[in-house]
Write a protein that binds this DNA or RNA. Sequence first.
DNA 1: CGTGGCCTTGAAGACGCTCAATTCCGGTGG
DNA 2: CCACCGGAATTGAGCGTCTTCAAGGCCACG
Lengths: 228, 228
Amino acid sequence: MEISLEARAELFQGAMGFSGVSRQGIKKLAAMATMRRFAKGQMVFEQDQPCDFFHLVASGLVKVYICSTSGFRMTYLLARRGEPLNLVGPFTGDPRFLCAEAMQTTEVAHIPRHDFVRFVADYPVLFSNIMAILSKAVDSANSRLLDMVEKRVEERLLRVLLTLLDKFGSQIRLTSAELAELAGTTVETTLRTMARLRSLGIIESERGQITIIRPASLKNPDRLPLWV
Amino acid sequence: MEISLEARAELFQGAMGFSGVSRQGIKKLAAMATMRRFAKGQMVFEQDQPCDFFHLVASGLVKVYICSTSGFRMTYLLARRGEPLNLVGPFTGDPRFLCAEAMQTTEVAHIPRHDFVRFVADYPVLFSNIMAILSKAVDSANSRLLDMVEKRVEERLLRVLLTLLDKFGSQIRLTSAELAELAGTTVETTLRTMARLRSLGIIESERGQITIIRPASLKNPDRLPLWV
DNA sequence: CGTGGCCTTGAAGACGCTCAATTCCGGTGG
DNA sequence: CCACCGGAATTGAGCGTCTTCAAGGCCACG
């Protein structure tokens, strides 16, 4: 975990929500941060734990999800390098019910929540940056709510695929179980739907890997893409 | 609409999210605000309009909802005196897809968004207040997402009733259509479910009015109440 | 070569939506 | 004062979408 101050500064420099912070500020951030490595499947933080740190992904991929008492999961966010895991939590410190789990070998930068909050107070531009991000997150959550009520699984999956296409390109390395958690459905239904999309020539898929063949077929900009 | 500066100050004094602001700050807020009256059914703001004002309800009741292209609505928030309608919007100014509609004769205070943002920058306590509120709102939205996927209509309605009970007391003056929009279902299903609850002796209902007879029956604190 | 994770497919059944018809109530206007 | 009209509440029937349960095959990795 011996990552240089310089490398950490570079991470924050390009991170989502930190644009507009002076070079000097970035250095302060880098000095406050500690790095930690997570293996695939390891939890970065768990449900109902108080929030003591701000987390920023440095490498790898982390999924943030909500989990019901009955064990049903809904993936909320797929975060890679430069993306924060918990923008809201540090301000209150209260436990939420989000969990974050590494999907690959992953490195995450941690900043103690009080340091982070103090820093934001010193750099008001962060305030509006954060608000802009939250605004998208709230809209995305609301939009998904509508989808869950009135859209069929196929449309929800198409929307998820479109979003993943925008973010990760046409090669998507996810299992059907992971897709199901993104679309809010079961593995079986996901598989059946993917089979249909495959027969339509829209996608190809192998074990743990989906390739989008005809991106144009997904573009039905009824509404904005999700924020994943 | 000739409401005294004093009365406006009193409104902001007790408003959600403004605790901790000095008496002097409250006066500044009151000076920036203008009041406007809305009749039942009138829109306070509409979908896809740029956000130019911060809105705070002074009297009456406003529902904030999202609306899909197919016309399906989902009520997001019932705001009464002292509750803000759009905490996020003023910071970016971008159009969102929320609408706000007066459910009764209602008075709303408006503050130009730039004035509001500048004010928040001057009173950092507002920052954490707003974050605390947003935190609840995001959790509530996520929690509803889970409910939509895995809970049946009856459970969702019970959860809505429990939330309304906490906020408005055991006398709830809403129609079944309004309940349906809160629970994310149709009027017919709502009616059928309410009939079942009535036969169980949990509620009584007349035209446009529901009375919760046995509040204890609703308390199944599987998870936190919604934020309405 | 065995085990576990992932993919696949079938069949059954439930939940809730849609459509439709009817009644009830309150307010409005003649 | 009565008749009408529109919104609200009810209830029935039909049906589509998904979930659930179950069984089997495939692939990778230890």
